[in-house]
Design a protein around this nucleic acid. Sequence first.
DNA 1: CCGTAAGCGAGACGGTACGTCCGGTCTTCTC
DNA 2: GAGAAGACCGGACGTACCGTCTCGCTTACGG
Lengths: 197, 197, 197, 197
Amino acid sequence: MNVMTGRRRGAVRSEAARRAILSATARLFAQAGYDNLAMERIAAEAGVGKQTIYRWWPSKGELVAECLLEGMLLPQRFALTDTGDLRADLVDWIQRLFDILSEPGGEGLLRSLIAAATENADVGRRLRDSLGGTSSIAVRLASAVASSQLRADAPLQEVGEALIGAVLVRALGRVPVAEGDAARLVDAVLGNSLGGG
Amino acid sequence: MNVMTGRRRGAVRSEAARRAILSATARLFAQAGYDNLAMERIAAEAGVGKQTIYRWWPSKGELVAECLLEGMLLPQRFALTDTGDLRADLVDWIQRLFDILSEPGGEGLLRSLIAAATENADVGRRLRDSLGGTSSIAVRLASAVASSQLRADAPLQEVGEALIGAVLVRALGRVPVAEGDAARLVDAVLGNSLGGG
Amino acid sequence: MNVMTGRRRGAVRSEAARRAILSATARLFAQAGYDNLAMERIAAEAGVGKQTIYRWWPSKGELVAECLLEGMLLPQRFALTDTGDLRADLVDWIQRLFDILSEPGGEGLLRSLIAAATENADVGRRLRDSLGGTSSIAVRLASAVASSQLRADAPLQEVGEALIGAVLVRALGRVPVAEGDAARLVDAVLGNSLGGG
Amino acid sequence: MNVMTGRRRGAVRSEAARRAILSATARLFAQAGYDNLAMERIAAEAGVGKQTIYRWWPSKGELVAECLLEGMLLPQRFALTDTGDLRADLVDWIQRLFDILSEPGGEGLLRSLIAAATENADVGRRLRDSLGGTSSIAVRLASAVASSQLRADAPLQEVGEALIGAVLVRALGRVPVAEGDAARLVDAVLGNSLGGG
DNA sequence: CCGTAAGCGAGACGGTACGTCCGGTCTTCTC
DNA sequence: GAGAAGACCGGACGTACCGTCTCGCTTACGG
């Protein structure tokens, strides 16, 4: 019956161009970082007219955001596992983030993402979600509540933000990561820090 | 006898120019943000030759770092007080940071500082120190340890990083701040989150 | 029986589209001049796909040439009359050309036509013919020969070219037209300039 | 005493850059013609930043005008000689112009100059003056008046414009030049065309 | 108190990238 | 198969800044 067709005319968006642009963006982002990423170079690298980029993405930020969403900028190893032991799972996850900081170029990668996030709200949100899998961390903490490893009224969102935030602060402050830092951070936040008083 | 003088010759650095440059930088930073801050505009605004800037600061980052250090970019209200009640002091401090996010333009200000930090290590370190009063937080936590509000082996650095980091994550993710968030965050990090088991 | 039909198949060329394109071209030409005339704008203004233009005209020049031929660019008042008095007829004709130069926008119009002529041979030829009514001037001069106002061996073509050329030079040189210039030009070319010796 | 110094500050204009730009312009103009002359290519060819061009010339037209003035676009062989025989001198001069039309690429050269003239008033005036040496033709005609080869009240300006104009019309109309055309044109304009009537 | 070495304002310079406009071609769908 | 729509690659536009380099001062030692 084709009700509500909304009929469009003219050629349809080229998927080939879209993929070429995104992968050129990812490639150049990894090489040069967000601030040195030039639209002109992306277009050249992708074999595409600049207009084809501007037609679909309003800014560099949006372009990077989409790359991030497609998992082209970060290794896909940040999912939180659920072994039943909350502390171990969190330490493992934070450790993987710290590992990136220690890799050559990894610190720059993370800082570049932060730079992108300052310009683009989507990247900002996605940085929060994508590193922790948004869901991923929320789900894991909820599961911990269920198994009463966490109190029912524990501020799940704040715990997640504090953990990720600590990683960002490390990246921005160029603080080298030492053995055991991940564990110390998780302990700090999960909080057996209070004394007996 | 002035041995070892090695005296320079020629005119001495102009303090007037230095102050004009820094205040032009601060003014334009507040107006336009870090990314839209142009050396050329700073020079024009300050009534100064570009060379005079480059003679004393190697880059935009250093210039902003010095502004930050001189307290020209952020309101100077981040010192941690010590009322004897650690939790109250921390909540008060975090609340003041959150207040900035809520002010009009305040979120942009903080994001601009983060952007500067991604480019310049000094800004990165100073952001960490300046928000937390550098030592300020470490001193306060140490005092808490002394009064045994905190365990002796509490990971002081990690607690500080987590708190500041959470604020940054909020700024990047454009998360609006709600009543009670500061308290929830502090509780999360000070960590009475663990359940009874 | 329609022998020799050779009938094409499919839709026939749309006369509506053709007219819309030509009149959009004429309208935009008058507004913006030849150099600022954009195929894309013509198509939009005419409510026509770009391909429809390119299917029938190989270039902007041809398009303008056809407009010129259809009399859509210039007022149709350049025919040479034949009152029996050659000098009077020529002065009248040149005066009408000079009048265009004096009208607001008229100088730009003529210069735009010249610009088109530099790019497109058809326009060049047509400009020569259209201003001089092609044949119009040749016919008039021939008539003058017949009535022995002109010698039999007078170089008719050269006289025509010199008259039209003088108008073009005026347009290109932005020389304001003064009272009596038309007469002086005709006299110069018809040539009672030689002295007594 | 140095009255009226008018003190300028900052580095002085680079003569090297100026010459590089002009000669690149002339080179590319000859190769590609006015319409295909790209500021970007001029800058590249001259080894100069685009801004350095735009700083001193507001448009392509002005740039070409200055080249023309410096004699970099046209062979410098258009001066009118004065052998005492006006007709012979004019025929010789027109013939040299026609020769350009006959050379390979010469027609394009002249048409390119006309195209430049439609965009830029200076070029227009200079085309009128430079081909005839403005002065050059006026001087020659005045000299003819003195030797009473021309009447005292002969319309000198109109004669000059008609001659040059005829050349332009030939260029625009792509009319091939034939033997004897120059003489015929000069005769037409000097005008022993009037019959006995 | 003169010479020389800086500092300073101004601003020209070679470059890179920006975001826009348009050229001419190709693709999709409708009439 | 013509036509409206519009995406595509590419090239040029004119502008904004970058960081470096003269200029013609002015300032402040040091011989």
